[in-house]
Design a binder for these strands. Sequence first.
RNA 1: CGCGGGAUGGAGCAGUAUGGUAGCUCGUCGGGCUCAUAACCCGAAGGCCACAGGUUCAAAUCCUGUUCCCGCAACCA
Length: 682
Amino acid sequence: MDKNIVNSFFITTPIYYVNARPHLGHAYTTIVADCMARFNRLMGRDTFFLTGTDEHGEKIVQAAEKNGQDPQTFVDGVSALFQGLLPVLNAANDAFVRTTDSRHKQVVQKILQKVYDSGDIYFGEYGGHYCYGCERFYTEKELEDGLCPQHKTKPEYIAEKNYFFRMSKYQGWLKQYILDNPDFIRPERYKNEVLSLLESGALEDLCISRPKSRLSWGIELPFDRNFVCYVWFDALLNYISALDWPDGEHFKKYWPGAQHLVAKDILKPHAVFWPTMLRAAGLEPYRNLNVHGYWLVRDTKMSKSLGNVVDPLSMIDRYGVDSFRYYLMREMHFGSDASFTEESFITRLNADLANDLGNLMSRVLSMNARYFGSIAPSPKLITEVDQELVNFACESMARFQRLFDGVCFSVALESLWALVRGLNKYVDGAAPWTLYKNGDMDRLSTVMHLLLNALYKIAVHVWPVMPQTAQTMLEQLGMGHLAGAGPKGALGVNLAEELESWNNVRPGTRVAASSALFPRVDAKPKEETARRPAGADKKSAAKVATGAEKGAEKGAEKGAGSRAEKDHSGQTEKGPIAFADFQKLDLRVGTILEASRHPNADKLLCFKIDLGEAAPRQILSGIAQYFAPEELVGRQVVVVANLPPRVIRGLESQGMILTADRADGIELLSVSGPVGAGAAVS
RNA sequence: CGCGGGAUGGAGCAGUAUGGUAGCUCGUCGGGCUCAUAACCCGAAGGCCACAGGUUCAAAUCCUGUUCCCGCAACCA
């Protein structure tokens, strides 16, 4: 199959795991996918845009229980939230797949059976040597003299039989395939990461089942009713089940042009598991895996403490969905991380959208109204300056198209905006107001004709990112008939052909007399300025910034929640408890006698604390990044004294030091005056 | 020596697969214009492209080493 003749385009988002509500990360992935889908439609490619929800697994069962619902009801509810986000983002998907769809289940079972029949799924033992201290399994190799390398204790052998996919078998093939297809995984840094992953460690086989006794909310294995499918063989297959594999028309038409879009946290499943699964099932690999980074959002705690919660998604209500889409596409260099701030959002909105584009549209339409009664004039003599403008426009558009195709959205938009600025410059150079004053109507016609047509070019190119704006522009340019005239609601335009013609807004066309696409936003977000201490010197200001970023890491929003990943939203809701429960806590004040770094862990400090007992207690605490051990000696802290001892990284901890969170760090809980060691807290 | 990413004018980022005058936006300063959303246009200041070696006629770009940041993984009782 010659890839160059493929003229279909199939773009997917990951299916979002329904244990969390939609956030910025989901929104970004969805918007990028939508922009790509729209762009490809305009390029004349037969396009299919798929998104959906991932609905099986243990966490779902738990979450449903907590809500007092059965899993299916729970899942229906959250999935609806994700579906509801699509119109808000103005995402025009062609299908929405759910892993609880019966069609999906059938496909999963069919593929499982197929791979099983071909011998690439086998029944084996899962886990093995389980160390309770580490809460993990060890392989024979990792054990030292049969003991846990951390705790030097004998781990318990836990046998759980499970089914495995013979993934290791395809390691060599995959590596070669990636080398032979340099843009298979892009941007390049992620390709390198996958390659090094394949080179460094031997690829292990993939456990693909869970016994029903432990997990019932999943798809049954067709060859063993006692097991359900675990995570990836279920989730990844949505990409083909939604296309009606194996015989569906959609599958035949779109699979050859398949492109996946994911956040970097699920690189491995998509770059390694998925291609090998496809290979094992006898299917062609997808065409490209496009990997993006995270949006770093300032810690929400920080905003809350200022009484001003800033939810990125609320920007849509505040500033409009098109600005939001533009900001995300323009601000993040695809593949890298970027930070989301209202401040930079407003800067972009004002500079690029209001000042450059909106104002350009406004001044051109307004002049044309004044000079030609809002009728598009006809071109007369094309001068050298005019020709230069046209050439520049064509270069910019061609560059935009090439870059957008290559997933470099921000640079692509930058290129288009070079044209926008070029047009503003052209206006100044041509000075239509002077021409008008001098009665040079021929020249004036030519200039205005070029401007109107250039605006048309901008409008159609901007459509993938800002559909509403593009439509408004086209309507104002008298070209409203193009909106929705293309396949599946796209513009009736072929972008590739736009590079050749230059007479779309025909002389005689009635255009609008004025335009206000993007009103300027003057208000600076208050909390941005309030946050910086006024008299802070450089050093401490830098620290504040670092602290803010630290917090931001926690708030980093991934595009693609996956079941395999840990649930970081550990905020359990705390209902009322009985007073008796509170009384069970043995809280005491202790004096820190010694403090040192844990020899074998980055985040842990090791303390000797006097609780008024015969011997001081050894207590570990994960606060090494906030405090130097020396500065803590002698301090009095509040300790939970009746927790069971626990070994962490090889050292036993006999209690817990209490701390309070702050935006840029933490503080130790202490007492307002000295008390005796071991004083009870009540 | 766990894996990986990064260091480019005040801020945020391109540029690094194919070495050849250091580019963009914001910000600052000066000027211009008046059609426009106090917008637009022009000009200026501001960079030994983290550091040190090496290859080369030529290095932000290639090679080696170093420092500092940041993710992920392991621990946060």
